[in-house]
Design a protein around this nucleic acid. Structure first.
Lengths: 348, 348
DNA sequence: CGGTAAATTCAAAGCGCTTTGAATATCCTA
DNA sequence: TAGGATATTCAAAGCGCTTTGAATTTACCG
């Protein structure tokens, strides 16, 4: 069923039917109702391509998720992020086009999205501290919102980010308040902007109490369970092991916990752990008292906010960029406690 | 830059340029080269909507991922599945359109996808044993491939599934061979087809050795860490606790492990665990000797296969349906061992 | 009741591409 | 070198929609 058939069957012109369906004012109320009913009965929906061709808009947004060629990793947070964004698109009638693209084909992917005209805007995922994508998108003039930030990017642009620096700064302070002095940082890849900021927060907090960051207590890698385990295990075997850990994701934290228990220690008593928690639905830590003390920020909510922002930019591209900084909640669970006596003196 | 501008600049007709670009034979080789170079220089790509309108194909496939309204859960396996599918689409020039849709709006979503003409086919995710989507898609004539199966669906259709029954049958037998007789099953929601089949395999294996399934040792829920923990904890507190567990996902297994250790028991010695492992990139259990004994099947690979199949159906819709059954690998890790002496006699 | 303003409706153009059917250029053979 | 075959190129139609500008109806007022 297409417009022509529908309008023919109603004895009306395509113009009138189109207008009736799209809510234009210059159509008689009686006609509008008649058209709406016929359309519903025929299960008619305008062809998206034809409409897009006529209007110049595709009613779709792109999400380009980078897949690191070396690691072939796909962060599970995308599932939740996308779910959040979807909620917004669904109500606005937008489609979501996803391209999972190897690092080196990213630029190509964005250019293709633009010149093929398949999307009206994009969400940029997983920005690095130094990220050419933002300049590229500015240059080609495709509306975009970044989930996260890119530290080295000059000039304003639309982003939605958690205050990663502050989150880890507060977490580190929280641990130091409990008497911990040797705190292991099990971080994500430093090239990622969020990881760099967390590192920064951690170091700042230590410095503010006159503690020098110890390189042997800082680990950087993909945030897998296995890496979390290996890194924590290794640090716990040091002559002066950490009494607490900061983990970059709940998945890392699982690994850290395993390493602790594996070493015959008790989580929350012998060794404390604070993790960043993206509040993923399948990894939710939401008992009355959560397992992990965490800096928590829902990535699904971030998805909603990003999508909403992008919709707004697409509707009015002239508006000034908005920088949306979310504060993570520091929620206390069972994985933290006072530093064991004696160990606080071990540091240099 | 559009076709008209490009062909004008070359002094050729749109017809010739279009044909040159699309590899039609009736164009002089010299012309083709000249056109190709000009197109590359101008960064020209045909407008997807216009092309779609002219050809009747959208060069996009849809993935409708259901979000259960009650749980608001998004399975992290989607990230990996999508990454696998993407690899295929990327090379074939297809876009991937994702709709994350609440249960009750699913039918609407599929109909919209069809009548708006935004996709040439769809992948059906997370089928239930009784799933109206397959009949719906057949009815509306949209090419589809199901990731999984729907037991109660009569007649053939294209699906790609792991042999869930066999996987859990073998896992259960493996545990019984080690002397285990009380085996806890911590499963996904039974309405899901994969969960029902795993349940079936488990029960069959028990029966084959004359053991009756014990309802108190069977738990069914979303496959979260928290649920895995709670269920295992509860079973371990039974008068006659299980000596082994079967987990439905690596995430559940994390919870099961925590419950075991929490109860002062040792994984692989006091209590054995076998988990289904979708081989998610961030949850990969790939040390020399994996932590968990597992029935493993890469969901990313499944994504590739589904996508490939769908491409093929779209190209030739007349071909007979293909049913693709993957066998999970039973890989032995450190989470299984002989049943502790004495406990094997506890059962009734 | 005539005439103008307002309310409705319509025909046709155009979005950027593919493809049909026709036109033109080139080649080869007798 | 004529004449048909073959190789290239082209103009124009059409995909299904929105939207412009014009046409037609209806409403209103003196």
């Amino acid at each position: 069923m297409n417009l022509k058939e529908l309008s023919d069957s109603l004895g009306l012109s395509q113009t009138t039917v189109s207008r009736a369906l799209n809510g234009y004012p210059e159509v008689a109320e009686a006609t509008r109702i008649r058209v709406a009913q016929a359309a519903a009965a025929a299960n008619y929906r305008p062809n998206a391509r034809a409409r897009g061709l006529a209007t110049g808009r595709s009613m779709a947004v792109g999400h380009v998720i980078p897949i690191s060629t070396h690691h072939e990793m796909v962060n599970p947070i995308f599932s939740d992020f996308i779910a959040g964004a979807s909620e917004v698109y669904l109500d606005r009638g937008y489609d979501m086009v996803i391209s999972a693209v190897p690092d080196e084909r990213e630029e190509e992917a964005y250019r293709a999205l633009l010149s093929k005209g398949s999307v009206d805007g994009v969400i940029v995922h997983a920005p690095r501290s130094l990220d050419p994508r933002i300049a590229l998108l500015r240059e080609i003039g495709l509306p975009f919102v970044v989930h996260g930030r890119s530290t080295n990017e000059p000039g304003p642009y639309n982003w939605v980010d958690v205050n990663n620096r502050s989150a880890f700064l507060r977490a580190t302070e929280f641990l130091m308040d409990l008497g911990h002095r040797r705190i292991g940082l099990i971080n994500g890849l430093l090239a990622m902007d969020f990881a760099a900021r967390r590192h920064q927060g951690y170091v700042e907090a230590l410095h503010s109490r006159g503690i020098a960051a110890d390189e042997t207590l800082i680990h950087t890698s993909e945030m897998t369970e296995a890496q979390g385990y290996a890194a924590a295990k290794q640090m716990l075997a040091l002559p002066a092991p950490p009494t607490a850990f900061l983990g970059a994701s709940i998945i890392s934290a699982f690994g850290i916990r395993r390493a602790i228990e594996d070493s015959g220690l008790v989580l929350g008593r012998d060794v404390s752990v604070i993790t960043f928690d993206d509040d993923l639905s399948y990894l939710r830590d939401a008992s009355d008292v959560p397992t992990f003390t965490a800096t928590r920020s829902s990535v699904r909510e971030a998805g909603r906010i990003c999508a909403d922002r992008l919709m707004s930019i697409i509707a009015d591209p002239a508006q000034p960029p908005v920088e949306h900084l979310l504060e993570a909640a520091l929620t206390v669970g069972r994985s933290t406690g006072p530093a064991p006596r004696g160990t606080t003196q071990q540091m240099g």
